[in-house]
C-alpha cells in the first residue's frame, strides 16, 4: 500500500490529512485513521480499481453566532488517498468507525497468503 502524492490529492480544495497507522500481518493490512468530528454519515470510503480514498466532513455542534478565537482544526474536511497493491482483496474490506477513529481491515487474497513451502530431500 503506497500513498498518492499530495499534489494529486490536493487537486480540489485544501483538506486536512488525517494521521494514520498502517499495520501489516500475514493475513492482511489494518489501517487506523483519526477523523475526529466526523459523524458516521459524513464519512466516505471509496475503493476504485487500486485506489482507496478516505474522506470525511467535520460537523461540530456550534452555537449560533460563535466566533472562533483559536483554531487548530481549521478546515472542515479530511481526505487521504492510498494506492493498494494487487495482493489485497478489495472486495472484502471491513470498516468500523467509532469515536472518530476509522479501522479498516483489508485482507490479502487467498492466493497471496503465505504458504509454507515443503522442501523435500531426495
Amino acid at each position: 500500500m503506497t500513498e498518492k502524492t499530495a499534489t494529486e490529492s490536493a487537486r480540489n480544495e485544501p483538506t486536512l490529512m488525517p494521521p494514520v497507522d498502517v499495520i501489516e500481518d500475514t493475513a492482511g493490512i489494518t489501517l487506523y485513521a483519526d477523523l475526529p468530528g466526523v459523524p458516521k454519515d459524513k464519512l466516505s470510503l471509496h475503493v476504485e480499481a487500486d485506489t482507496l480514498t478516505i474522506e470525511g466532513e467535520v460537523a461540530l455542534d456550534m452555537p449560533e453566532g460563535m466566533e472562533s478565537t483559536h483554531a487548530e482544526v481549521s478546515l472542515p474536511r479530511y481526505r487521504r488517498v492510498f494506492t493498494l497493491s494487487k495482493e489485497l482483496d478489495t472486495d472484502k474490506v471491513a470498516a468500523e468507525f467509532a469515536h472518530g477513529v476509522l479501522k479498516l481491515r483489508i485482507p490479502k487474497a487467498e492466493h497471496a497468503q503465505p504458504r509454507r513451502i515443503e522442501v523435500r530431500v531426495e
Binding site: 483519526d34 477523523l35 475526529p36 456550534m62 472562533s68 483559536h70 487548530e72 477513529v101
Partner: peptide, 28 residues
C-alpha cells in the same frame, strides 16, 4: 500560549453568553 501540534488539537470560540472549547481526541 497555545502550543500547536499537541494532542488533542483544540479549537476555541465564544459567543456573548458562552465560551466553547473543542478538543479533538478521537478513540478515547
Amino acid at each position: 500560549g497555545f502550543a500547536r501540534g499537541g494532542f488533542p488539537a483544540m479549537n476555541v470560540g465564544g459567543t456573548a453568553s458562552s465560551v466553547e472549547i473543542y478538543a479533538f481526541a478521537p478513540g478515547i
